[in-house]
Computed example of a mutant assay.
Amino acid sequence: MEANYPGMQVLLANNLMMAYNQAEAAQPVFAFVEDGFTKLPEFEMMLALFSALDTRWVAVMDDQAATPARKSSPLLNVGAGIFELTKSDHPRQFAQYFDMMVKAPRRDKPGQRRGVGAVATGSTDFKKFILVGSSTGGVEALRSLLVGFPAQCPPTLIVQHTGKNFGHGLVSLLDRVCAAKVVAAEEGMKLETGRIYVAAGQKRHMGVSQRKPMKTRLKEGPAISGHTPSVDALFTSAVPYGRDAVAAILTGMGQDGAKGLLALRKAGAATFAQDEKSSVVYGMPRVAWETGAAQKQVSLARMAGVLLQAAKG
């Protein structure tokens, strides 16, 4: 196939972490992905990176009898990986898919960096800080959310459930699209305007200090609500600042965050949950809504504007 496309560079990866690092560095226009990779929870990161870079991809199954991952994965069942090849298919079929996908219309500027495409949000006179928790489907949801945040957004803390080796990749991915600065949460970081602190793929829970000036606190301990880091741990730590907080639960499996969100609401925080229609998995948001933890359900498309408006006090 390489002989038919002079100058084409081909990169090979035998694990998902290697594939992610290569894609982030090389920004490929197309990828063949072994279907087994697409069944891994961490493939959500690859999906978001492919979306950010406008990289087209095709899943390659072991044989025609195999069941494609998209049949059972909520992540892949929303339009990704529509086409499948098998390892026994003729190279000509691979070339046909390559031509079809590469020649399809592309965005003008794939992989746009921060500040490009951010929505106008009016005044940036924010008085409150923002807390966000997400799980399955959350990587792309966070990407969509943060595109709408201005450079001088309220201090924002995010817990995302992801693989242990993908925390740095998530920060880099979100920083690529966000006008504000996205950083990996570390111990003792002062909460500042224009900063977004992300805890993902690490062994410690993120919270906030109990005294002002507010700082990040990272604490080792057993899993809370089945996760480390835990959304419940983050939300619960902010209860003393309830009236100064705005919190939201995005798409995800399970119920992590619902108890903490309820405690925040009782403490005077503005609380929201992503609605069912825009959620990849309506698990965490459902529990938050049905238990009364969320005051309102909001579509992903409207979430950034709602959170920013609430943060103005």
Rank of each mutant, 00 (worst) to 15 (best):
E2H: 10
E2P: 08
Y5S: 09
G7T: 08
M8N: 08
L11T: 09
A13G: 06
N14E: 14
N15H: 11
L16A: 05
M18K: 15
A19K: 01
E24W: 13
A26K: 09
P28G: 10
F30C: 07
G36I: 00
F37G: 03
T38L: 10
K39C: 08
F43R: 01
E44F: 04
M46T: 08
M46R: 02
S51F: 12
L53K: 05
A59P: 02
A59W: 01
D62R: 12
A66R: 15
P68L: 02
K71Q: 11
G81L: 02
G81Q: 01
T86S: 09
S88T: 07
H90C: 15
P91D: 12
A95E: 14
K103E: 13
R106G: 04
R107S: 13
K109D: 12
K109A: 13
P110S: 10
R113T: 13
R114E: 09
G115P: 10
V116K: 12
V116T: 11
V116I: 14
G117K: 04
A118N: 11
G122L: 06
S123Q: 12
S123G: 08
D125H: 13
D125M: 09
K128L: 03
T136F: 01
G138K: 04
G138T: 04
E140C: 02
E140M: 10
R143N: 11
R143H: 10
L145E: 00
V147M: 10
A151R: 15
Q152T: 15
T156W: 02
L157T: 01
I158L: 05
I158N: 01
Q160K: 03
G163D: 07
H168K: 12
L174V: 03
L174S: 01
R176W: 06
R176N: 12
V177M: 11
A180K: 00
A185C: 07
E186T: 07
M189C: 03
G194V: 07
A199Y: 01
H205V: 03
V208F: 06
S209A: 11
S209F: 08
S209R: 09
Q210M: 11
M214A: 10
R217N: 11
L218T: 05
I224W: 05
T228S: 13
S230W: 04
S237E: 05
Y241E: 09
D244Y: 06
A245H: 00
M253W: 10
G254K: 03
K259Y: 06
L261N: 05
L262N: 10
K266S: 13
K266D: 14
A267Q: 04
G268F: 06
A269L: 01
F272M: 07
S278T: 15
V280Q: 00
V287E: 03
W289I: 15
E290M: 15
T291Q: 07
A294L: 01
K296V: 15
Q297M: 14
A304R: 00
G305V: 04
Q309G: 13
G313W: 06
G313L: 02
